[in-house]
């Protein structure tokens, strides 16, 4: 399969099938954008992210020995930040320098009356974990344990 960036019409994130859990995947024109969209995919498992307003931001920073591990670190840091702040996130910004990631997540506090909450993600895992690039399209994916 060949990936091609086709601009606005292309979906930027998605979830995919796994027998017991759920796969999440983000696409981007750079690895950073793929990480940002991967985070959207993960939060879309928990909530309808279109309903989550980007009102408040939280900072996340992490490091890892390679890009694959860095993607999992980024997602797991977002999960603990989301949990501790009682927030859901819908918009992300990532900057990667070597093994270091600095990121921001925008969202709002959970409002059970307005947000349609779905399944809790326990963790991002190393299963089917892959960060790669072809034809200038970056893909970041893994299975999340729910």
């Amino acid at each position: 399969m060949v990936w091609k960036w086709t601009g606005q019409s292309m979906k930027t994130y998605e979830t995919f099938e796994h027998r017991a859990d759920i796969g999440i995947r983000g696409y981007g024109r750079g690895v950073e954008e793929a990480f940002e969209n991967g985070a959207k995919a993960m939060f879309s498992v928990m909530v309808d992210i279109n309903e989550v307003k980007a009102q408040e931001s939280k900072e996340v920073s992490c490091d890892a020995p390679d890009m694959d591990y860095l993607f999992v670190e980024w997602l797991n840091n977002l999960l603990s930040t989301s949990h501790l702040s009682g927030m859901m996130f819908s918009s992300f910004k990532v900057e990667i320098n070597g093994n270091q990631l600095k990121g921001s997540a925008w969202g709002e506090h959970i409002d059970k009356g307005r947000h349609k909450l779905m399944t809790e993600v326990k963790a991002a895992t190393y299963s089917m974990l892959k960060v790669s690039e072809e034809n200038d399209v970056y893909v970041a994916q893994c299975i999340v344990d729910v």
């Binding site: 990936w3 995919f16 790669s132 893909v139 994916q141």
Partner: peptide
């Protein structure tokens, strides 16, 4: 894009 498992193939 070789090497990326695209879907969870269950055989």
């Amino acid at each position: 894009m070789t090497g990326i498992p695209l879907e969870c193939k269950v055989r």
